[in-house]
Design a protein around this nucleic acid. Sequence first.
DNA 1: TGAATGACTTCGG
DNA 2: CCCGAAGCCATTC
Length: 111
Amino acid sequence: MTTKSDNFFKKVHEIARLIPYGRVTSYGAIAKYLGAARSARMVGWAMNSSGNDESIPAHRVVNRIGVLTGKNHFQGTSLMQQLLENEGVEIKDHKVVNFEKLFWDPSQQLN
DNA sequence: TGAATGACTTCGG
DNA sequence: CCCGAAGCCATTC
């Protein structure tokens, strides 16, 4: 790590903060927006690195089907789910209910 | 330098 | 959508 924050991480952090309240997105969507659709895993890695930053709502980022895959990396087990439910997002079996409706595409930030 | 890992995605069945 | 397997890519050992 030559610098404290690479542009890739910085972008991921930036987009993560742009996720509206009560909305969710997928790693692939962010990766694709960043032009690294094949590096969806790196998005998650970036979140792990940003996990030190509380201003980044990593709990709003899930996999392509809306499963809270990263909850295991969170402080607790149900914390991620609780955070989403607190925002009005209903969670069923670690999955986001009405994921398609709650899904937020980074491209919408251009609206 | 090379092998292993993972907060994913896509494809075939 | 579910299941299994392969692909991708940056980070770590």
